[in-house]
Design a binder for these strands. Structure first.
Lengths: 129, 129
DNA sequence: GCGATTGTCAACCCGATGGTTGAGGATCAG
DNA sequence: CTGATCCTCAACCATCGGGTTGACAATCGC
């Protein structure tokens, strides 16, 4: 059963152009869901807890949670009548890995930024050290 | 004018819960657009070049490119009758930074993975260092 | 058993998205 | 000037997404 876990993790790290990314990025493309993830980062939350901060019906919030589940970002355990949601950041690692693939295209800009700051530093009168 | 560039870059790195992220993640949530970015990583491409690999009309591809532009991922320069598109990875850095914020929630799992691999390594007969 | 609580489900509304086609504005080649 | 090329724009269509409401299943407290 640890094998399944391993396969799941490795799959997340490798499969970079899959439809999985559609679900992940789609889930992240909504401020409400990002705020929910932010909340879940503090610990497990019930559906009601997650819905509370928003001016929307419980059903609407439930849909958002389902979107997060479809992306694999949230897992749910049912305890009695309350549904306990917890964060699963694995898919976020996938998204992170995908964006990292393009890192060389912005690091050059950051190097430029650093150079500009250094230059500006040189032109401004030094205030000691 | 370098000030504007600086402000743009810094803004990208800081503004983490802005509606900008909506556009960025939404742009990334489509396989067609991700493939376009992949192509643009090779160098500047015309609209026709970007549309060619896909079984869709030029107008449809044009809409995808507009979505990428809205997210700031693509900038366009018009040369005669052809529109030259080039990658701007700055917003990708923003997305990268956002996901990084949750890194501690998956690194633990990766540590588990590493531990499992190490353990497996120890149990398999070593083939000479 | 009964009422209150938690949450899903289904139907519905409406704006956004992704696709098409057709028309047309520029520009390049001749 | 003329025709071909590149691309956008507008109209249209189907589907999706996010929101609502109302009904209902299941559980907890009593």
């Amino acid at each position: 059963m640890t094998i399944a876990l391993l396969a799941s993790i490795l799959n997340h790290m490798v499969e970079l152009d899959a439809p999985v990314l559609d679900d992940i990025f789609h889930a992240l493309g909504d401020a409400t869901r990002r705020r929910m993830l932010h909340e879940l980062a503090e610990g497990p939350r019930s559906v009601g807890d997650l819905a509370a901060p928003f001016a929307m019906s419980l059903a609407a919030a439930s849909k958002h949670i389902k979107a997060l589940e479809r992306a694999g970002l949230v897992r749910r355990t049912i305890q009695g009548r309350t549904h306990l949601c917890r964060l699963d950041a694995g898919p976020l690692a996938t998204a992170h890995a995908w964006t990292a693939h393009y890192q060389r295209f912005w690091t050059s800009r950051l190097d430029t930024l650093e150079a500009l700051l250094r230059q500006q530093d040189a032109t401004t009168p030094p205030k000691g050290d």
